[in-house]
């Protein structure tokens, strides 16, 4: 009798997603659901989705969810976590949500060491609104608001929020990964699990930045988009553990 070795995690609802073909969000949702299943925390997890493509994450990840205004997920999550420290609270935010409008909330939560697990999906554009420039758009990259390619002294340099947060006293664990190949997807899952564990151990602020493909707005095929992340985007956003203060703190 055949044995099933890969199936949909419990915490991932069985419906089609609205994401575009090849988009990384679907993969990341699965990884979060698998981590929730494996840690056995579905009955005490609360998610805070962003305003962005993943605002509808609550249609897919089967946990309690509270929607935040654009950029404010971390503040809303802080309110939930501080009043219910027994809950596991994560935010799911895009690059515009956390590294543009929500920068202050991210920096100060990291500075206060808020016990939160932040999933930061960096796909270099504002996806939901049609592919405008984001703080993480690469130099020279064309978007609907950088038609001739991003110019540093007009449009700014690619912002590395993870590095900025690593300096904050209360941040404990920050890693950057991608979901553009199976090997990296597996590494992303480990990072997400660590980010949840850091919170559950009450150590402080944890964040996983996930470079993700946005084929439709990059005007690339899903396969080409994944290749572009692994060849180009990683030059501005190198992968790996950016901060891991766990050993020192326990």
């Amino acid at each position: 009798m055949a044995k099933q070795v890969f199936k949909r995690p419990e915490a991932l609802k069985e419906n089609t997603t609205h994401y575009c073909p090849g988009c990384g969000h679907g993969i990341i949702h699965r990884l979060i659901a698998e981590v929730i299943d494996e840690l056995g925390i579905r009955d005490k997890t609360v998610g805070v989705p962003p305003a962005g493509c993943a605002v509808l994450a609550y249609n897919y990840i089967d946990v309690d969810m509270g929607e935040a205004p654009h950029g404010r997920a971390i503040a809303v999550a802080t309110g939930i976590k501080r009043t219910r420290p027994d809950l596991v609270v994560f935010t799911y935010q895009g690059d515009g949500d956390i590294a543009a409008i929500g920068t202050a909330e991210a920096i100060h939560a990291a500075s206060r060491g808020e016990r939160l697990s932040v999933i930061f999906v960096n796909n270099g554009v504002y996806g939901m609104t049609g592919g405008q420039m984001a703080p993480t758009t690469l130099l020279g990259q064309t978007t609907t608001t950088t038609p001739g390619g991003r110019l540093p002294l007009r449009d700014g340099f690619p912002l590395d929020l993870s590095q900025m947060l690593a300096v904050a006293g209360g941040s404990v664990y920050i890693e950057r990964t991608t979901v553009t190949s199976p090997k990296n997807i597996i590494r992303t899952k480990k990072a997400i699990k660590k980010a949840f564990q850091v919170q559950m151990d009450g150590l402080g602020f944890a964040l996983v930045e996930i470079l993700s493909q946005c084929p439709i707005n990059w005007k690339l095929s899903p396969v080409a988009a994944c290749r572009w992340v692994e060849e180009e985007v990683v030059k501005s956003y190198p992968l790996g553990v950016i901060k891991d203060a766990r050993e020192k703190s326990n």
């Binding site: 609360v46 805070v48 509270g66 935040a68 205004p69 404010r72 503040a75 809303v76 999550a77 802080t78 309110g79 939930i80 976590k81 501080r82 009043t83 219910r84 809950l87 202050a104 909330e105 920096i107 100060h108 206060r112």
Partner: peptide
């Protein structure tokens, strides 16, 4: 729980979260 937030804007959103938690 008392928090001095980083802005009045962050503060109302924290209240939003606390209210969601009941």
């Amino acid at each position: 729980i008392f928090i001095q937030a980083e802005s009045e804007l962050a503060a109302i959103n924290m209240v939003m979260g606390a209210s969601m938690a009941g």
